[in-house]
Design a protein around this nucleic acid. Structure first.
Lengths: 229, 229
DNA sequence: CAGTGTATATATACAGTGTTTATTTTATTT
DNA sequence: AAATAAAATAAACACTGTATATATACACTG
């Protein structure tokens, strides 16, 4: 068989490859993602994929960027559903949406925050824009609290010096917020991430610790600790 | 070549396989762990490994159990270096040791709590004993606080019913502590895990958020939130 | 319209992987 | 000493990602 005529070709093969990859990740999990399996599904040969992605890692990077974008879209949309003045409710809303997205798309969550692909390490420079944007919802709310003088952060560690340049790059994608707010956001993020990742990966002991209840408690803890009443 | 005489054989090949696996994980990372590579290193053939582990996943499980055991040893040892009456200091000590162990052995940490092996999912029943024991240091301190009436847990979510049996199994390995203490320990664990896993996996934005300082802050937050003064 | 160049696919091949089967040799037991 | 069990090798299968060479379809140019 030779190259098929354009009429039988798949239009926008680049997107079709990513779509098929997502389907396979959803069905069999990220670790078993295979270029050859994608090619079989699309009825093309494996090397054809190399016209669109230089190698498998590049495809994975594209998937990660898409996942970050989808995740960021949800975070920002959920934030904007709550009036700008209701900062506490905004924080709660994006916190709950965080877990919900992870439960809805566990494989995407692990693709982003885990290391489910053998030998793959995400290229920071490429991923940074979408990653920074996805966290910007949280950072914006924390910075809103800071501006409104409602942020409690007694004894919070100060920022290391010498990173101004990287921070400037970050700002281009995540918004121009105070780096102090960023650090507080980082702690909050690590808390929700810790709970969610244990729940998703099945590392929570299976004896009736309700993930949802624990998570609600943790969100309230965060609000109590960081928001002035 | 045929089977070598016993004198040239490696004594305790089972242990040697695990040791070589650890070396390769340390050098190249867990995801690229390869039975054939282990065999090459040991100058045996790959199928020979199947006399000691039924498949690669079984080897990984054995490695995970060893890692949990090593981790649990450190946790328990660190706890016991602080007098039994100094519960707050015990909590702080095991908290700091948690991060230190993760920084000392990042691959082991990711092997346990991440999903770095393609398609591998840890068999709960086999891993439970060492996993439960490794967390028992934390649970014991939390339960000590509860018994001493020093544990703050207002509004803490109640335990789901119907899991008595699993909890009984858990107790055999982790010690006979109150299930309420277990839930509090779970929250504390998720917090340190969240911060450590972000730091280990390089998912912390690279602009001067000092992992060590943040971690110390988080440990203090935990103490402030859960221990009566 | 003919010819050329480029993009896009296939075909083939290589080195690697986990795993299965059959076979051979060593070690142990009867 | 003979039979048996254990532990290794050898060979093969079905995969994987990827590099190279090749052939075809399409678009542009003279």
């Amino acid at each position: 068989m030779v190259r098929p005529s354009k009429k039988q070709q798949i239009p926008n093969l680049q997107e079709a490859i990513k779509e098929t990859a997502w389907n396979q990740i959803a069905e069999f999990g990220a670790p078993t993602l295979s270029l050859r399996a994608i090619a079989r599904e699309l009825k093309i040969t494996a090397p054809a994929i190399y016209n669109y992605f230089p190698n498998r890692d590049a495809l994975v990077t594209a998937l990660i960027i898409d996942a970050y974008t989808s995740f960021g879209d949800v975070q920002i949309a959920v934030r904007d559903e709550v009036p700008e003045t209701e900062l506490e409710e905004r924080l709660r809303a994006i916190g709950l949406a965080y877990r919900q997205w992870a439960l809805d798309y566990p494989q995407r969550y692990q693709l982003i925050f885990g290391t489910p692909i053998p030998g793959y390490v995400a290229p920071m420079l490429e991923v940074l824009p979408s990653a920074a944007r996805s966290l910007s919802a949280l950072v914006s709310v924390v910075d809103g609290l800071r501006v409104a003088n409602k942020l409690i952060a007694n004894g919070f560690p100060s920022i290391q010096s010498g990173y101004q340049q990287q921070f400037e790059v970050w700002k281009n994608y995540a918004g121009d917020y105070d780096i102090f707010s960023l650090s507080v956001a980082m702690i909050i993020w690590s808390r929700v991430h810790g709970l969610v990742s244990l729940e998703i990966s099945g590392n929570m002991p299976p004896f009736g610790v309700d993930g949802s209840a624990l998570y609600h408690y943790e969100i309230s803890s965060i609000i109590d600790q960081f928001i002035k009443k």
